[in-house]
Design a protein around this nucleic acid. Structure first.
Lengths: 121, 121
DNA sequence: ACCATATGCATAGTATAACTAGGTATGCCT
DNA sequence: AGGCATACCTAGTTATACTATGCATATGGT
């Protein structure tokens, strides 16, 4: 006799939903990180995992970075000198900054929509 | 001689990005609307178009509503009595409310991540 | 010396949801 | 009669996150 509202099922549903919800916004988060300082894949992954407190598989990250380069949002250069493995550094471009601004505006837009639909004045 | 930063290209990129960014969140917005009062497709579409100030094609809306019903987030019933075309009313379920709560939490989570990465204390 | 782990990059294939482009039908206005 | 708003639906396309791999170098423990 309990009032447990079967959260195990919604958990499964939520877990399926989460990756869908991230679509597009990872690009925004990446640009946000790179807007402060250039970085390389593995490093940025670590930063984002902390900030988002979530996993970030490499199969998600690297293809995304390549698309961003393809679209001219970031520039890349290899650093083969530093002791460790060669690192591919990503630097945000002016076009990347423009995109970031638009994305952030969109996010704020959604915040307001949430509040509006919530009934907040 | 001007400093125009070619926003037409980023516009095209942004327009391609937007639908990806909406993935998952439309479900959240829909649940939010239905959490106050039951509604039917066409009506809710109008509400959301206003609140989001964006288009919401029917080819997006109706399949989404069906998925939500399939997943037990909403219940449905036909209203064939009222004068106009038959309307399919959607009512949020307890499970739907649970999902909505989790989604909103996730959104707040992202807000904090944005601020953190932005450098806000 | 050896092996596990961490670092660092990459891709092929799968799943999912938003969208495009169509379809059906009723009621209202001129 | 014709056009428009209302009201629902679906087949097919596209883009992205993820799974499961693969490769290579550096580092730490025994």
């Amino acid at each position: 006799m309990h009032m447990v509202m079967d959260s195990s099922e919604t958990d499964a549903l939520f877990d399926k939903w989460q990756p869908q919800a991230r679509k597009g916004w990872l690009e925004c988060f990446l640009l946000l990180v790179l807007s402060h300082e250039r970085g390389y894949g593995y490093q940025v992954a670590t930063q984002l995992r902390e900030a988002l407190n979530a996993e970030l598989p490499e199969g998600t990250l690297y293809p995304l970075l390549r698309r961003m380069q393809r679209d001219g949002l970031v520039d890349t250069e290899w650093d083969t000198e530093s002791g460790s493995n060669p690192r591919k550094y990503y630097t945000i471009t002016p076009r990347g900054r423009l995109m970031l601004e638009k994305m952030r505006t969109e996010f704020e837009h959604w915040q307001k929509a949430m509040d509006t639909l919530e009934g907040k004045p």
